[in-house]
Write a protein that binds this DNA or RNA. Structure first.
Length: 828
RNA sequence: GGGCGAGUGGCGGAACGGCAGACGCGCCGGCCUUAGGAGCCGGUGUCGCAAGACGUGCGAGUUCGAAUCUCGCCUCGCCCACCA
């Protein structure tokens, strides 16, 4: 801090500037702005009560980019809202008797205030709160559109059910590997209930296509793996039992079908009962019942024994025409492929383990070309040079060819053909909870599930509800809510009590931001056409799959219904790292390691906290919280303050000659102009830590310039003004204050981003490292256009190089223009 | 078990085929001061008085040159987890 001039006191001006920006609507994004639109979005938070340091970390990065892009001439929209439906509000209601709406509203009010203290350029006029009926009305409207388009349907699905409380539990309400009810500790069971689904699997293939999307590779990979597309063949194995359909299986290895020596059905497979023979019925029934009870509990374990029972009947291998036994085993998953598989123990590890345990035949039908068939272990390798053995007419054929040939042979006999299957399942959107958007459906005894007419939306959540500790959704016992009439026939009907998964709310909130106050439709098509798609989306990587994939699905589905005219919601995506507690664990209230930014801001100011968070490391990395070092960032800002105050130019002892001063001024100007693009590139690449270090270097250069008496010169003023402009996105308050004090027009945030003067950034002398055998021995200072042979001569003439050459003539000299010289000796 | 990512000073990190340790914290020394937990100046990878040698988890390799590329191993983190 400067000895003269006024002390840096962020508390004296930060709030004032925030009020002014707010009053002036500085960050309001207008639809008719002639500049190019730029939609920058950061994931909205769940209103848990307080903003912690992680929220600051997540929001400051995109705020910097938003501010820079605005200075670069774009019409930036940067909105914020609240993901305000969900379980914690309901838990608060149950535990403390506060109504979820009340609890949520007070949390939002608090967090909104805290958000404002960060000095982000959020356009609060566009705020979206998903638990507001003005929002969920349109969530319901969208459900109806999905229903009409056949993309929302009802089906039986297993749910976690507490037999004591008689209630469906959410996934997070089932605790531990013993799977106990969070409330009463009873062991939870699976129970089939009618649930609502969205048909996301219709879009599996399109969701695999990331063409033109600037997304992190790990996220694309995770979604790709989640969708889990597998190519192979479907093959029908006729069952001997009369009246039973052939058993269809999916396989990625049709080339091994000659080695299929038995079949295994999932316990849930629909043909199990019909295929079970009388003498096996007791065993099979017991096994199926046990598997059903254990679904997911035991199946989670990879290492467990391959259990199963023989069903008593046989099928025919369509290639060998052999009778092969049919088993039931819980390692076969009901939801994947056809829920049945042909077991090829010689070429699949799981089938091999099953065959060994149950003493079933193992037949090798593929082997490495020219090698004997391996014994004692499954041969699963799938490379180019394998051939079929013991496979009838296909014996000797390369495995890669056999895949197609066998599939064709089966297709000719109507016993199969090429097939594709996915791991992706349809999206279960039903939640048996209160605090969510009610599914807008009524059940008519005559017409079944009927959507609520659009002009009767929203289906409001009743407010007069009691939250009993049994955790049963109060909607299920709210007579007035349940009472409905059929929209088709007017008969007495019952209202659906399921609410929607909160991921439904977040699958379209980015559309609502475009026209948040429209009360005639979910969005204004013109506004959406103007702003969408989101140019840059930021958020935590924990949403890699669900939220991001659901949003992509929504956009594609709505496009196909004619509501949208683009394919993807988010062009570019960046993930911030997670700030952990000082104990290296996730911040959570129960651990007591949550860092509240309020203490830090009151002590250092918002700018310092913002800058510190961006300085501690790469933004996408995160890491454990450690406030050590915040002083350094504060000192940096205080130094910027000191060199920028108008009276800073008064000091300095002009000492050098005019020529020396001109050279120093030129060096300062070069440093200034070099920094402009470096900082811009770093900001754009989310490398805020290096951007800040470069601004620190410029500030240090300005301090030195003042010490040598440059403070009164134009180069000094240019350096300071440029530094303030570069720093403005990261430290918006103090740069605004200094900008004003230096006599410039309000606001620094409406200035154009500075342009680097190329004539200043090109260097005329360079320092070249000189290596001997790759080891640094000397440095040469030469003019930038020195010819190569001259550089070589100078390098060889260096006494230090000579010493290391030790009389030897160089073998060769490698020059990387402008980078270095390496002299290679013949020795090695 | 599979996939992805990461290992660099006392610490956060920079460099990402070409000067390892930018920038900052901390620490050491000095200046200023009635005082300093303020500010300013200098130093700070390790060993060594020095010249110099060594140095980016470990081990190989490619290259004139490797923290960076390749292969194998170790450790940590995240995701998926019997997906036929």
């Amino acid at each position: 801090m400067t000895a003269r001039g006024e002390r840096f006191d962020p508390g004296s001006f930060e709030q004032g500037w925030r009020d002014r920006w707010e009053a002036d609507g500085l960050y309001r994004a207008s639809d008719d702005d002639p500049r190019d639109k730029h939609y920058l979005l950061t994931m909205y938070p769940y209103p848990s009560g307080d903003l912690h340091i992680g929220h600051w970390y997540a929001a400051t990065g995109p705020d910097i980019v938003a501010r820079m892009r605005r200075m670069k001439g774009l019409n930036v929209m940067f909105p914020m809202g609240f993901d305000s439906f969900g379980l914690p509000a309901e838990n608060a209601a149950i535990d403390r008797g506060i109504h979820p709406a009340k609890w949520t509203a007070s949390n939002i009010a608090n967090m909104r205030t805290q958000f404002r203290s960060m000095g982000c350029m959020f356009d609060w006029e566009r705020e979206v709160v998903v638990s507001d009926p003005a929002y969920y009305r349109w969530t319901q409207w969208l459900f109806v559109q999905f229903f009409k388009a056949g993309l929302a349907y009802r089906a039986m699905a297993p749910v976690d059910w507490c037999p004591k409380d008689q209630v469906v539990l959410a996934r997070e309400q089932v605790l531990g590997t013993e799977r106990r009810c969070w409330r009463c500790g009873t062991t939870v069971i699976k129970r089939d209930l009618e649930q609502w689904f969205f048909r996301i699997t219709n879009y599996a293939d399109e969701l695999l296509d990331f063409t033109g999307m600037d997304w992190p590779e790990p996220i694309r990979l995770m979604q790709t793996n989640w969708i889990g597309r597998s190519e192979g063949a479907e093959i029908a194995f006729p069952a001997e039992t009369p009246g039973v359909e052939p058993i269809r299986v999916f396989t990625t290895r049709p080339d091994t079908v000659f080695g299929a020596t038995f079949m295994v059905l999932a316990p849930e497979h629909p043909s199990v009962a019909a295929l079970t023979t009388t003498d096996r019925k007791a065993d099979v029934d017991a096994y199926v019942a046990a598997a059903r009870r254990e679904t997911e509990i035991e199946r989670l374990s990879t290492e467990r024994e391959k259990t199963g029972v023989f069903i008593g009947s046989y099928a025919t291998n369509p290639m060998t025409n052999e009778r092969i036994p049919i088993w039931v085993g819980d390692y076969v998953l009901p939801g994947y492929g056809t829920g049945a598989l042909m077991a090829v123990p010689a070429h699949d590890e799981r089938d091999y383990a099953f065959a060994k345990k149950h003493d079933l035949p193992i037949r090798y039908v593929v082997q490495p070309a020219g090698n004997p068939a391996p014994e004692g272990e499954p041969f699963v390798a799938h490379t180019a040079d394998e051939v079929l053995v013991d496979s009838g007419e296909f014996t000797g054929m390369p495995a890669s060819e056999a895949i197609g040939a066998i599939a064709r042979s089966l297709a000719e006999r109507d016993l199969g053909g090429p097939a594709v299957t996915y791991k992706l399942r349809d999206w279960l959107v039903s939640r048996q909870r209160y605090w969510g958007a009610p599914v807008p459906i009524v059940y008519c005894p005559e017409h079944g599930a009927v959507p609520v007419p659009e002009d009767q939306l929203p289906v409001l959540l009743p407010e007069d509800v009691e939250f009993a500790p049994t955790a049963v959704s109060p909607l299920q016992s709210h007579e007035e809510f349940l009472k409905a009439t059929c929209p088709i026939c007017g008969a007495d009907a019952r209202r659906e009590t399921d609410t929607m998964d909160t991921f439904v709310d977040s699958s379209w909130y980015f559309l609502r931001y475009c026209s948040p106050h429209d009360d005639q439709r979910p969005w204004d098509p013109e506004a959406v056409a103007h702003w969408m798609p989101v140019d840059l989306y930021t958020g935590g990587a924990e949403h890699a799959v669900l939220h991001l994939m659901y949003s992509r699905f929504f956009v594609k589905a709505l496009r196909d219904m004619g509501h949208l005219a683009f394919d993807e919601p988010f062009i570019a995506l960046r993930n911030q790292g997670q700030i952990l507690g000082a104990d290296h664990h996730r911040m959570s209230k129960s651990r007591g390691n949550v860092v509240n930014p309020d203490d830090l801001t009151s002590r250092y100011g918002s700018d310092t906290v913002r800058l510190f968070l961006m300085f501690i490391g790469p933004w996408d990395q995160g890491g454990p919280w450690n406030p050590t070092g915040i002083e350094g960032v504060y000192r940096f800002l205080a130094r910027v303050w000191g060199i920028s105050l108008p009276d800073a130019s008064a000091g300095g002892d002009a000492a050098g000659s005019a020529a020396e001063d001109a050279e120093l001024a030129r060096a300062l100007r070069r440093a200034t102009h070099m920094t402009i693009d470096e900082v811009a590139d770093d900001y754009a690449g989310f490398r805020f830590n290096t951007a800040i270090s470069k601004m620190m270097e410029l500030a240090n250069a300005i301090v030195r310039a003042r010490e040598v008496g440059l403070a009164g010169q134009p180069a000094y003023a240019e350096a300071v003004d440029t530094l303030l402009l570069l720093l403005a996105p990261a430290a918006p308050h103090m740069t605004e204050e200094l900008w004003q004090r230096r006599g410039h027009d309000y606001s620094v945030h409406q200035q154009a981003w500075p342009v680097a003067d190329a004539s200043l950034t090109t260097v005329d002398t360079i320092e070249l490292p000189v290596q001997v055998d790759g080891k640094l021995r000397d440095r040469l200072v030469v003019t930038a256009n020195t010819p190569a042979d001259e550089i070589e001569r100078l390098a060889l003439a260096s006494p230090r190089v000579q010493a290391h050459l030790d009389g030897r003539a160089p073998d060769r000299v490698i020059q990387v223009p402008g980078k270095l010289v390496n002299i290679v000796t013949p020795g090695d």
